[in-house]
Computed example of a mutant assay.
Amino acid sequence: MHGLILAISAYLIWGGFPLFFHYLSHVAATEVLAHRIVWSFMATLLLGLILGRGRTLRRLISDGHQMRWLFLSALLIAINWLIYIWAVSQQRVLEASLGYFITPVLSLLLARLILKETLHLLQWWAAAFAGLAIAWELISLKTLPWIGLSLAIAFALYGLIRKQHPVDGLNGLTAECLTLLPLTLIWFIWQISFYPATLAFGHNAFNTTMLISAGLLTALPLVLFAMAAKRADLSVVGFFMYLNPTVQFLIGVFVLHEAYPPERQITFILIWIGMLLFIAGMWRQRQQRRST
């Protein structure tokens, strides 16, 4: 039970990210991203040292092969973060939540195509409904839901790399942020040298506190999820993954009052049907594993 509570807490924090980044909408997405990388590195490094994972981190950093793959995964997660931060600032949380509804299905398809993992028939149907939702969006609104698709593709590829090159979540994120620090430092030097007036950090206490907190908020649900995975069956924890986009969707509609075309209601209905089929497929697979 404690494991499930920790998992639900992690998913609820992830789902609440639109509220946090909404208060940073006045800050350029690139600056928010840069600070998120820096302060995420500081937060995860400190937590890792407190939890006694310093030796493991040193071994990881000295492994050149692993670090090259983590640099690639870091670029993917940075792209995901940047698009998401920008989407929230542009009042497009609903489109972002669509991406996180699609991500688990896309991850399964990548696992099937690349890792040759088997899928339950219900999960194939889930993929079909996700594809139908995207097709409906294209036909009804004459545009691809590029925000959702970009977020889903970046995160699914990120998950694929991390699955093929497994590292614990905390040290993994520390190492990923470490690989991005040189690029982040170059960006800061460029901004300070040529566009210092555009920087929000240090402008007032609110901006500075919120930008620092972006790193802390990134680390917290990661630690909670890692604790949950140790205390509960990961397949059970996975059933709650849709809490994240569901909370994002509810925040977008009822808190941020985002307007959206009526046609998008059909999109989400199709996605929710796919979500139920996906969860049912996971449950059936779990039952089959138990019986063998």
Rank of each mutant, 00 (worst) to 15 (best):
287 Q>V: 11
280 A>K: 07
192 I>S: 12
207 N>F: 11
84 Y>C: 05
174 T>N: 02
278 F>D: 01
56 T>Q: 15
273 I>L: 14
207 N>H: 14
199 L>P: 02
124 W>M: 07
147 I>F: 08
195 Y>L: 13
46 L>K: 07
11 Y>E: 13
219 A>W: 00
236 V>D: 04
224 L>R: 04
8 I>Y: 05
249 F>W: 07
121 L>W: 14
41 F>G: 04
280 A>N: 09
94 L>C: 07
40 S>K: 06
140 S>D: 11
59 R>K: 14
263 E>G: 15
24 L>S: 00
16 G>R: 08
110 L>I: 12
65 H>I: 12
210 M>C: 10
90 Q>P: 03
255 V>S: 06
77 I>H: 05
63 D>G: 08
180 L>E: 01
109 L>S: 06
93 V>D: 03
139 I>F: 15
38 V>R: 01
6 L>E: 05
33 L>C: 04
217 L>V: 09
29 A>V: 07
94 L>S: 04
141 L>Q: 10
65 H>Y: 11
246 T>R: 00
61 I>V: 15
268 F>S: 08
182 P>Q: 07
32 V>C: 08
213 S>Q: 12
177 C>N: 13
190 W>F: 13
2 H>A: 13
254 F>G: 13
256 L>P: 05
199 L>H: 07
52 G>I: 12
157 L>P: 02
214 A>M: 09
252 G>F: 02
284 R>C: 14
252 G>H: 03
183 L>M: 13
74 A>T: 04
168 D>Q: 11
143 T>L: 12
264 R>K: 11
284 R>L: 14
46 L>D: 06
14 W>R: 05
112 R>N: 10
27 V>N: 02
19 L>R: 00
119 L>K: 01
258 E>I: 08
173 L>W: 04
250 L>D: 06
208 T>N: 08
211 L>D: 00
111 A>H: 10
3 G>A: 05
214 A>H: 03
268 F>K: 06
251 I>Y: 00
196 P>W: 08
4 L>F: 13
176 E>C: 06
184 T>C: 15
57 L>W: 02
48 G>D: 03
50 I>H: 11
106 L>A: 08
63 D>P: 09
74 A>Q: 04
91 Q>G: 14
55 R>S: 14
61 I>E: 04
203 H>V: 13
225 F>E: 03
25 S>Q: 14
48 G>P: 02
95 E>N: 09
97 S>P: 00
89 S>T: 08
141 L>D: 05
102 I>H: 01
88 V>S: 03
231 R>E: 06
255 V>R: 04
197 A>G: 08
13 I>G: 01
12 L>F: 08
153 I>V: 15
182 P>F: 06
37 I>Q: 01
121 L>Q: 15
187 W>S: 00
275 M>P: 00
40 S>R: 06
26 H>M: 10
181 L>E: 00
